[in-house]
Design a protein around this nucleic acid. Structure first.
Lengths: 146, 146
DNA sequence: TTGCTCCTCACGTCACGTGAGGTGGC
DNA sequence: TTGCTCCTCACGTCACGTGAGGTGGC
């Protein structure tokens, strides 16, 4: 088993500030796996994964922390279902409903990402074209004034 | 010639708030093409293009308004050079320096966009894999409980 | 005159940044 | 005891959102 990390190591490990970790806790987005009797926060590897996930959703999708909270709750439910299925728990309408919900959420995310990818590719093309034009201008400069 | 737009039309045209337009002006990022004697802002099509550019750089590259200001200044200089060249102005070391600068800026932007594209594609793959897993679980549900 | 658009303060918000001052285990 | 890490206020910042109250041309 890996030991729990103090807040400074945890923050460094996932490239965020200590303030961010405390803030996520303040708004109920992430609670550290434990606290020492003295009140020091201790983070598990799962906590770190969650922080990295938060950052990914912020930077890649531009979601705010409220939207991320909703998404993470859906992911937590999906994880729970997977545990249940592994334990050969009984199938149920609730389970199918949760799976359907998880599927819908992912499909919406996929659509968002696809749209963003399209916009980014277009943007990249424009930059490439601009680079070409500048290089041509530089070439002409060399020709007209050797 | 197209007439200048009032702030509400201008804002609607590029999908931003009036407050944003006033804020960009407040920090010297965008000044409307004109003001009426009564102090009403009038925006030109170039102004609208600039606003759309600001939004693009914010949403696609995640730049803050200070970084965007620097970039726009570089773009303004490039536009100026192009005007000069069109007017058959004399070649100069200054002009080559400005072109070199413009090229470097674009190449840096291209690298940033490429990195972001790579991260987004990876993210998209993960979502796709997750969708596949959920669909499989749903299939198994149907098999075990008809 | 009545709407409508626009104006300038000015305070609020979100996601933190940044000290100030104090606690707690090697 | 001395460092070092960590703690909790609490105010600051960036990019606006959101009224409050007033002006100005059809």
């Amino acid at each position: 088993m890996t030991a729990l990390l103090g807040i400074s190591k945890a923050a460094a490990e996932c490239g965020v500030s200590e303030r961010s970790l405390r803030y996520y806790e303040e708004i109920g987005l992430l609670s550290p796996a434990g606290k020492t009797p003295g009140g020091l926060r201790r983070y598990s590897v799962e906590d770190l994964d969650r922080v990295r996930r938060i950052r990914q959703l912020q930077s890649l999708l531009g979601l705010n922390l409220d939207e991320i909270r909703v998404l993470l709750e859906s992911e937590d439910r999906l994880d729970f279902i997977r545990q249940e299925i592994k334990a050969a728990g009984p199938s149920s309408a609730r389970r199918r409903a949760l799976l359907d919900e998880g599927l819908a959420v992912r499909q919406a995310m996929a659509a968002t990402v696809d749209a963003k990818l399209a916009r980014l590719r277009e943007f990249r093309q424009e930059i490439g074209a601009m680079i070409g034009r500048i290089e041509q201008l530089l070439d002409e400069e060399k020709v007209t004034s050797p």
